[in-house]
Nucleic acid binder design. Structure first.
Length: 1077
RNA sequence: GGGCGAUUAGCUCAGUUGGUUAGAGCGCUUCUCUGAUAAGGAAGAGGUCCCUGGUUCGAGUCCAGGAUCGCCCA
């Protein structure tokens, strides 16, 4: 028995708050873990968010997907620990603190604030929104152990990170290189490639065509650049070796450029004098006059022309300038060329006139000898000056505007510089093959990520730029002595032992003070170097932090070895697609660097959320959808349901409040009202149910599914349970959820609709059936909509503290499957549909009974429909259902070939085979197939015997009958309405009218009444004839029939005059007793 | 410029290994049912399955090229 009454207009958000309270009281989440204590682990890793800003709707998306599968697997019987986590370090936090403190540069941090105070502020700021996050996490029903969440700033966490890095160093994979890296001059830090990826923006830059004179002639090289600020660093130019270049005369000048570019650039007035390849061009001219900008430490002289395949002729001139300090390709090509005065192994040979803050140093001079010192290189005013200077010296052919996508700092928006800096790297590119192999063991959802976006990224892997010249991060555990020896510290104990300093906090600046004598030995067993080793100033890329979470969250290897081994690798992780180059990568890279297998087995990649107009949500546009109002209006279940079922999550969402509302109306409310219906009548029939078999109280299996309809509902429920489990196992919440919605619709709009009378009458089998179905739905739905599912379970069963402590339903345990019955019901519903169609065509209301429906069906189909003939009869409101085996009685057949079976047999001859089939006499074929005699066709000298599957016989409706047909089925209705049928129809109209009166009079559905009817004589005839059924239907304990309306109404409370089919009817009634007897 | 994905009704989305009348929900029109349901049912309007070519007896589905959008990378 349900324990509580149900409000049919229940507001779901309010309900959810009650359920949350119940979960707290009963400690359900913890209990769900305790219950599986001994069970096999199913491992989930939480990708740590940063809590220094409020959570948004896209966080809700990933968090509900992070919830559904662990919930499901817990119900499946696994133990699913869900340790929360917070990403604490990194530039986002530093930026927020800088804003808070009103500063904006590293100098200010070090000089005005001090690293100690700055990092203290960071430590505080990083959890500014943690309570907001926790509140939202709880509200959306994301079960996560927030109490024991790992934090990347914890000492234990950082120590594990140090350990990992020291292991990597031991394998010789950590090195300090001098590479050109994306660099933010404002933050004065290097950005990793995944950070760069976050900040591309379309910008307009000047596009400059320079004409540089070759050394031995009058020809001028046309050189293209969009970064004039790099020209002072120019040391060479490069052409593409294989491309064709042209010597072109325009007016007085002769230019060299790629032939492809002559037309677009020089146009009509140009005359090609000669063509030559890039290699030939290098061979002939060798050098040009440089440098492009004078510098206090550079002599005028010849600079080399080089050739390299990276140069393209698709835009520009096919000739590019090389500044190895400001370009990765430039660096590589210059480093490889013997005739460039640059040795990559000697840092001082790299010509870089730009200081770390993005301004020129004192060396760069204008043509008048004025210094550009202190000017920010991306300053548009400077750009103008540089161009004017070049123009003045006659070096400019043309300046255009060029729109392209250029990387910006993802936090502060400053355009990045490509800039050669000393930086620490992990040689991940050496492990490319291992990472690719590990990726092969991973299931990606959607699958194309595996060999697409992610696989591609791995294939093109470059070494991981690990160091950040910042403050708030895990300090790089690298110590170096004046002689250049490097030692990587692998634990806090080691540092304490070597330095004699015990630190409570290993963040900067404290760790910077811990030095020790250099332990480096030149030969094994030799004397240690002993010079004072100091930590290098950098901190570690935060992605290395988060990628270390599989072991660092457990402080492995310093403790919890067992726990770590049990929980590696993860069965499941889930983040948005932007993490392919972020966390998905750092997890895999670190595991591979430590020679472990892939750290995850299944990855769900979620798409982006766009606003209702299809625009990307962003704070600056102000179009971001806040989660709280949505939760308050529709509720967490509604939002979850929308994310799970509206589409495949990786396709991205076009957020729609309307669609969420639709989900509530069409699914949650439909479920709720089916549940309400059950509870309403279960309570009304409490007595009958208590007397009935105890089975309905027990394990949910009804003692007797009394009717086919019961067996059908149970079979459908079992089938759905199987499908939902299967789809969730395959990380396909979308199909799984839609299957549940389909079941609920079948229960509501077919099972309950067809069984209403049995519920009014208190039939225990009907109650038991619906209870089983609803409880199963509650369990199936639990991972999706944990609130409403729990409420239904708790009220209908409640033998456990929560639905989330139940096992996920297995089809076999729900009910026996009956495929035949399911098929038959399908047919019966189809038949009903056709019959209603025929009624509609004839414009005869369903309330008017008809004599006969004639159904065309044969063989198994007929048996199926016959089994459910009562259902069909009642739905169509006909006295009889008659079957005919052949269409002849209703019309005639049409015949069509089945291309699917005949196509493969006849191939090219298919059109002729189709003709042959069409030429057959349909009735003859139908009869032959029925009798088992043989019909053959001959096409292109080939004989084929037609089987029943080779042809599609369809009914052709004759004129003048009310027939609906579809494929092989047809339903015809006998439209003759005799007096008898007419009176029954009227009786039903009268019942309908009385029911309306009851409603108007404000009666409860179960109230008994005294009823008096008067009015038109022909109506009263119908009343007299159907007196009993009218009384029964309207719960009338006494029924007076009179011609005199006033007399009948006199003693009753409520009176109404209405008309039925244009005839007058007076209805008077009085409540005699409330509720069922 | 390269990679990945998407493009099906006004909107949101399904569409199995290629099979000949391309579906659902919402919305719209008309009718209908209702003693749970802001529900349900029937009929109707609404489609160049982005375009072009190809493979095939047959293409929304496979292939190639292109367009547009999104993401990622240069």
């Amino acid at each position: 028995m349900p324990r509580r009454e149900v409000d049919p207009r229940q507001e779901l958000p309010a309900l959810e708050l009650e359920v949350l309270e119940r979960w707290r009281e009963r400690d359900v989440f913890a209990e769900s873990l305790r219950a599986r204590e001994a069970a096999e682990q199913w491992v989930f890793y939480e990708g740590p968010p940063t809590a220094n800003g409020p959570p948004g709707t896209h966080h809700v998306l990933s968090r509900v997907f992070k919830d559904i599968y662990p919930r499901f697997q817990t119900m499946r019987g696994y133990r699913v620990e869900r340790k929360g986590g917070w990403d604490c370090h990194g530039l986002p936090v530093e930026i927020a603190v800088e804003q808070q403190l009103g500063i904006s540069s590293k100098a200010e941090i070090e000089e005005k604030i001090g690293i100690e105070a700055f990092n203290a502020a960071c430590r505080e700021s990083v959890f500014a929104y943690v309570s907001e996050w926790n509140r939202l996490t709880e509200r959306i029903g994301f079960w996560l152990d927030l109490e024991h969440a790992y934090r990347t700033l914890d000492e234990s966490y950082m120590e594990s990170v140090w350990w990992a890095l020291s292991e990597i160093a031991k394998r010789g994979l950590l090195y300090e290189g001098h590479k050109v890296v994306p660099y933010c001059p404002r933050c004065e830090t290097t950005l990793s490639s995944h950070e760069v990826a976050l900040g591309y923006e379309d910008v307009v830059d000047p596009s400059i065509y320079l004409k540089l004179q070759v050394s031995g002639g009058e020809e001028r090289l046309l050189v293209w650049t969009t970064t004039p600020w790099t020209l002072p660093g120019n040391v060479a130019v490069a052409v593409s070796p294989g491309a064709t270049y042209a010597r072109v005369r325009v007016a007085e000048e002769v230019f060299l450029l790629a032939e492809d570019r002559v037309g677009p650039l020089l146009g009509e007035g140009s005359e090609i004098l000669e063509r030559l390849t890039g290699s030939e061009l290098v061979e002939r001219y060798r050098s040009y006059r440089g440098p492009i900008f004078a510098a206090s430490d550079r002599e005028d002289g010849e600079l080399p022309i080089l050739a390299d395949a990276f140069v393209t002729t698709q835009d520009g001139t096919g000739i590019v300038h090389l500044a190895p300090a400001f370009g990765e390709d430039d660096y590589r090509v210059a480093a490889a060329a013997p005739n460039v005065p640059f040795d990559p192994t000697r840092a001082d040979t790299l010509y870089n006139p730009v200081r770390p803050d993005g301004t020129y140093d004192g060396r760069v001079l204008s043509s008048e000898g004025r210094s550009y010192e202190g000017r920010f290189v991306k300053d548009p005013a400077l750009t103008e000056e540089l161009i004017a200077d070049l123009r003045g010296r006659g070096l400019v052919l043309e300046v255009q505007e060029y729109e392209h996508s250029y990387p910006h700092c993802w936090r502060c928006g400053t355009p990045l510089l490509y800039y050669a800096k000393p930086s620490w790297y992990i040689a991940t590119s050496k492990l490319r093959e291992e990472m690719l192999a590990a990726n092969e063991t991973v299931n990606w959802y959607p699958p194309h990520v595996k060999h697409g976006r992610f696989g591609d990224w791995l294939k093109n892997n470059v070494d991981w730029a690990l160091s950040r010249e910042r403050y708030w991060g895990t300090p790089l555990p690298v110590w170096r002595c004046p002689r250049g020896h490097v030692h990587v510290v692998g634990s806090f104990a080691e540092l304490a032992e070597r330095s004699g300093i015990e630190l409570e906090d290993h963040h900067r600046p404290y760790v910077d003070g811990a030095g020790f004598p250099c332990p480096h030995t030149d030969e094994p067993g030799g004397e240690p170097c002993g010079e004072p080793a100091k930590r290098v100033p950098e901190v570690i890329d935060v992605w290395f932090d988060s990628g270390s979470m599989p072991f660092a969250q457990h402080h492995f290897p310093f403790e919890n070895e067992e726990t770590f081994r049990e929980r590696f690798p993860a069965d499941f992780i889930c983040e948005a697609q932007d993490q392919t180059r972020g966390w998905f990568y750092s997890l895999l890279a670190i595991a591979t660097l430590l020679s472990w297998p892939a750290p995850y087995k299944n990855v769900v990649c979620l798409g982006l959320i766009l606003d209702e107009q299809g625009q990307k949500m962003s704070k600056s546009k102000g179009n971001a959808v806040e989660p709280w109002p949505v939760l308050d209006t529709y509720g967490a279940d509604a939002l979850r349901w929308y994310f799970f079922t509206s589409k495949q999550p990786w396709d991205g969402y076009r957020f729609s409040a309307e669609a969420i509302g639709e989900g509530v109306r069409l699914f949650l409310k439909q479920l709720w009202s089916t549940y309400y219906f059950y509870v309403l009548y279960a309570q009304a029939s409490a007595e009958e149910l208590r007397e009935a078999s105890t089975d309905s109280q027990g394990n949910g299996r009804p003692g007797g599914a009394a009717e086919d309809l019961d067996r059908w509902a149970l079979s459908r429920t079992a089938a759905t349970a199987e499908l939902v489990g299967e789809r969730l196992d395959a990380y396909d919440a979308t199909s799984a959820g839609r299957a549940i919605a389909g079941l609920v619709d079948e229960l509501s709009n077919w099972y309950v609709r067809r069984s209403r009378r049995r519920f009014w009458e208190g039939d225990p089998a009907a109650f038991a059936t619906l209870r089983t179905c609803l409880l199963t739905v509650a369990k199936l739905l639990a991972p999706f909509c944990p609130f409403v599912a729990d409420e239904i379970y708790d009220n209908l069963d409640g033998s456990r503290a929560s639905v989330h402590l139940c096992d996920f339903p297995r089809a076999a345990e729900v009910a026996p499957r009956d495929d035949e019955l399911e098929g038959a019901m399908e047919l019966a519903r189809e038949t009903v549909r056709l019959g209603l169609g025929a009624r509609g065509q004839a414009k005869i209301k369903v309330r008017q009974p008809l004599g006969e429906a004639v159904v065309v069906a044969d063989g198994r189909e007929r048996e199926g429909i016959e089994r459910l003939a009562d259902v069909v009869r009642e739905e169509l409101n006909v006295r009889r259902v008659r079957f005919v085996a052949a269409a002849e009685e209703l019309g005639s057949y049409e015949i069509k070939p089945n291309y699917r079976t005949l196509g493969p047999i006849f191939g090219k001859e298919m059109p002729r085979a189709a003709e042959a089939v069409a030429a057959l006499d349909p009735a003859h074929v139908a009869a032959a197939l029925r009798d088992g005699s043989v019909i053959g066709i001959a096409v292109a000298g080939r004989d084929h015997t037609l089987s029943a599957e080779d042809v599609i016989l369809t009914m052709r409706a004759p004129d003048g009958y009310s027939v609906e047909r579809e494929g092989a089925h047809a339903v015809a209705l006998d439209l003759a309405i005799d007096e008898d049928l007419l009176r029954e129809g009227r009786a039903r109209e009268i019942v309908h009218a009385i029911q309306s009166s009851r409603k108007t009079a404000g009666l409860q559905v179960e109230d008994r009444i005294e009823l008096a009817l008067s009015g038109d004589v022909s109506l009263l005839e119908a009343v007299t004839e159907h007196r009993d059924s009218i009384a029964r239907e309207t719960l009338a304990t006494a029924l007076h029939i009179a011609n005199d309306a006033d007399g009948a109404a006199a003693t009753l409370d409520y009176s109404e005059q209405t008309d039925v089919e244009g005839l007058v009817l007076s209805i008077s009634l009085r409540r005699t007793q409330p509720g069922p007897a």
